[in-house]
Amino acid sequence: MFRLDPEHTLRPVRSGDGAALARAYSDNRAHLAPWEPARSEEFFTAEWQERDVRRTVEEAQSGRSMRFVITTRDGRIRGRMNLNGIVRGAFQNGDLGYWVAADATKHGLATRAVDAVLRHARDSLGLRRVQAATLLHNVASQRVLAANGFTRIGVAPRYLEIAGEWQDHVLFQRLLEKSVTEPSARP
C-alpha cells in the first residue's frame, strides 16, 4: 500500500472490490468513454467487475500483471493503475495503463500514483522497463508520463481500438535502471 497524499492511497486490487469498481466506472462513464475501449452494459455491474477482480488477482499471483486502485480514506475508488503484460526473461517489461476520476484530475494524483507504481515495478517486481501508450491528443496523460521520466519512442498507427475506433497512439518508455523520481521532485 502506498500513501499518495493525506486523502488517497494506492493498493492492489483485491477480492471484494467489484461493487466499488462498478460504482467508480459508472460514475466516470462519460469521462472515460473517449479514452477506453467501448464497454458493454454488463461491464458496469458489480458481478462483472467482481469476476474481473478474481481474474486480476489470479494474474497478479502468476506474475502476469499487477493492478492497483486509488482509494480515499472512506474506501471509494478514485482511479486505477495497471501494469499489464508483464514479460520476464531478457525483457523484464510491463505495460502501464491508468485513469483517475473526473473530479480528481488536475491535482497531481495520477502523477503521484504513476510514481508509486514505477517504484513498485522496480523495487518489488524487478522490472527494468515500463512502457505506456496514449492517444495522440491525450495531452494530460502525456504530461503525467513526462513528469515521471517517460520518453517518447514513437507513434503506432491504429494501435488500439478505443471508443469504437482503431486509433493511433504515442508510445513511451521509462527505463527503471536509474532512480525513479524522488518525491521532492514531483509536481
Rank of each mutant, 00 (worst) to 15 (best):
L4D: 03
D5I: 12
P6L: 11
P6W: 03
H8E: 09
H8R: 08
T9K: 09
T9G: 13
L10R: 04
P12R: 03
P12G: 09
V13S: 09
G16I: 11
D17H: 13
A19I: 03
A20Q: 14
A20V: 00
L21E: 01
A22W: 05
S26K: 05
R29K: 15
R29Q: 07
H31E: 06
L32C: 06
A33P: 00
P34M: 04
P37H: 09
A38M: 09
A38Q: 10
R39Y: 11
R39E: 00
R39K: 10
E41Q: 03
F43T: 02
T45V: 05
W48F: 12
E50W: 00
D52C: 06
R54K: 04
R54N: 02
R54M: 05
E59A: 14
A60R: 11
S62D: 09
R64H: 00
S65P: 06
M66L: 00
F68V: 12
V69S: 10
I70V: 15
T71K: 09
G75N: 13
G75Y: 13
R76F: 07
R78C: 15
G79I: 00
R80I: 10
N82E: 05
N84K: 09
G85I: 06
I86E: 13
V87Q: 04
V87E: 14
V87R: 07
R88C: 07
G89D: 13
A90V: 15
F91M: 11
N93S: 14
N93L: 12
N93I: 02
G94S: 01
D95K: 04
D95G: 06
L96R: 07
G97L: 03
V100D: 02
V100T: 15
A104T: 04
A104N: 14
T105H: 08
T105P: 10
H107F: 09
H107G: 15
H107R: 14
T111Y: 07
D115I: 01
A116Q: 02
V117R: 03
V117G: 01
R119K: 07
A121H: 07
A121N: 09
D123R: 15
L125S: 08
L127E: 05
R129D: 04
R129S: 01
V130S: 13
A133R: 05
T134D: 01
L135Y: 05
L136H: 06
L136C: 10
H137C: 03
N138Q: 00
V139D: 12
V139K: 14
V139M: 12
A140K: 08
L145E: 10
A147T: 03
R152S: 01
R152M: 11
V155T: 07
V155S: 04
A156H: 14
A156V: 12
P157M: 06
E165P: 02
Q167A: 00
L171D: 14
L171Y: 12
R174P: 00
S179G: 13
T181L: 15
E182H: 15
S184W: 12
S184N: 12
R186T: 02
